[in-house]
């Protein structure tokens, strides 16, 4: 092992010992296993000293949040960018998530599951929240649920997001509550569109009219999206995998060509 030692501020590890410098030992003292400690140490020396100074605040923040060393290690492994986030920013971002309504438990799960959320600037997250409330008319509680269940939404392109929302709202006739329940934002627009268009062209899904009525009973969004392809095909579409496979290739070509054409008509 290299014996470079990076001096840093004090940190009270869960084991209670104050940590003053970064070494494999110090990470072990914080409660990481030997191999976790070595991994952290190595990734630190590879990112360089300028960044390394954030490691203790980052770890502190994660511990304060209530993550145990094993979860904290997982988080850093998934998202080494966190090493370089400034302490104040990290604190602001975490407290913003609380403000959005993520309660204890949910907050931790979101961070462990999708640590990148802590790398997203505060302004961006606030912007997405505003967007969901104002453009898509989700309630505050619904927005909380969306961020909790589909945190990646904070990084999605807002035009795409709006298009996806409008597609599901207008074309599929789905209200906000159901979108949230089905975790719509976990799926890409193409995934949603592909399954829906398949059903629609088969005559198994209808856009409700102005009064919200359809001549057939549409399948529930949940049964269309939250199932694997086989289940979707056998239980909902009642079609063969071979047909659906051809269909996917055909519509993706169709959509690509539509986009090209629209691009040609309105170049900007």
């Amino acid at each position: 092992l290299k014996s470079t030692r990076v001096s840093s501020q004090d940190l009270n590890s869960p084991s209670g010992k104050p940590v003053t410098e970064l070494s494999v030992r110090s990470f072990i003292d914080m409660g990481f296993t030997d191999s976790q400690a070595e991994q952290i140490y190595e990734s630190l020396s590879s990112v360089g000293g300028g960044v390394a100074k954030h490691v203790l605040p980052t770890l502190t923040a994660l511990f304060v949040l209530g993550l145990n060393p094993s979860s904290a290690h997982k988080v850093l492994e998934k998202c080494p960018e966190l090493y370089s986030v400034k302490e104040t920013q990290l604190q602001q971002r975490i407290s913003n998530l609380r403000k959005i309504g993520l309660v204890e438990g949910s907050l931790q799960r979101v961070v462990v599951h999708y640590p990148r959320i802590l790398t997203v600037p505060l302004k961006r997250v606030k912007h997405v929240v505003m967007f969901l409330k104002e453009k898509c008319l989700f309630t505050s509680q619904q927005v909380t649920d969306i961020i909790r269940d589909c945190p990646a939404v904070v990084l999605e392109d807002l035009n795409q997001l709006e298009y996806k929302f409008q597609y599901v709202y207008f074309r599929m006739g789905i209200k906000q509550a159901e979108m949230v329940k089905c975790r719509l934002f976990r799926f890409s627009l193409d995934e949603v569109r592909c399954r829906h268009t398949f059903l629609e062209r088969r005559g198994q899904y209808e856009t409700p009219d102005k009064k919200g009525q359809t001549t057939i009973v549409n399948p529930k969004l949940d049964s269309v999206l939250n199932v694997d392809q086989d289940t979707f095909l056998t239980h909902v579409a009642q079609a063969s995998a071979e047909e659906y496979d051809v269909f996917k290739r055909l519509v993706s070509r169709e959509w690509r060509e539509e986009e090209l054409q629209q691009g040609r008509i309105e170049p900007d």
Binding site: G203, Q204, A237, A239, L250, V251
Partner: peptide, 12 residues
């Protein structure tokens, strides 16, 4: 057979 025929007619 109709749904299969329908989606085919509405596709390329």
């Amino acid at each position: 057979l109709w749904p299969s025929v329908r989606v085919a007619m509405l596709s390329e």
